[in-house]
Design a protein around this nucleic acid. Structure first.
Length: 138
DNA sequence: TTTCTGACA
DNA sequence: TGTCAGTA
């Protein structure tokens, strides 16, 4: 089983997650209601959180402590998800280029390198700074 | 016993 | 956000 799958595996009840994140069960349920997290449910309708969910909630907790409101947190989480997807897309393209490089002509190689250079300016955009976050503060 | 939803402050 | 009621 892959590591990614382990992180997405539904394991913990809300009491454990509450301890892990230092958030109250009330808060965690509220954040779920606001679609900030999406824990799976057990047969008895009990919430089951994965490592991924816990990471997310810890991130939420950090932003709450910094005074970011829910709308802002939603934006930040969306950006973080996009970054994850972009990183995976980048890895994917790097992986593919390894195979393609075997029998590329010089011209094709130049085109590939040029494309990667252009893309890197977009993929390596700096992480969120204080300025970007400031508009989410009260 | 623990967790769930809904409701009130 | 905390807390209480009534359930499952």
């Amino acid at each position: 089983m892959e590591y990614k799958d382990r992180k997405a595996m539904p394991l913990f009840p809300i009491s454990i997650v509450s301890e892990l994140t230092e958030l109250s069960a009330r808060q965690i349920r509220y954040y779920e209601e606001k679609n900030l997290v999406a824990p799976l449910r057990s047969e008895g309708n009990r919430r089951l959180f994965s490592f991924y969910d816990v990471d997310r909630l810890i991130e939420i907790k950090r932003l709450i402590d910094e005074g970011v409101n829910l709308a802002g947190i939603k934006q930040v989480l969306k950006l973080r998800e996009n970054q994850v997807q972009e990183n995976e897309a980048k890895k994917q393209s790097e992986e593919e280029s390894k195979h393609y490089k075997k029998d590329l002509t010089d011209k094709e190689l130049h085109q590939l390198l040029r494309r990667e250079l252009l893309e890197s300016g977009y993929l390596n955009k700096p992480s969120i700074n204080q300025g970007d976050l400031s508009r989410f503060y009260h």
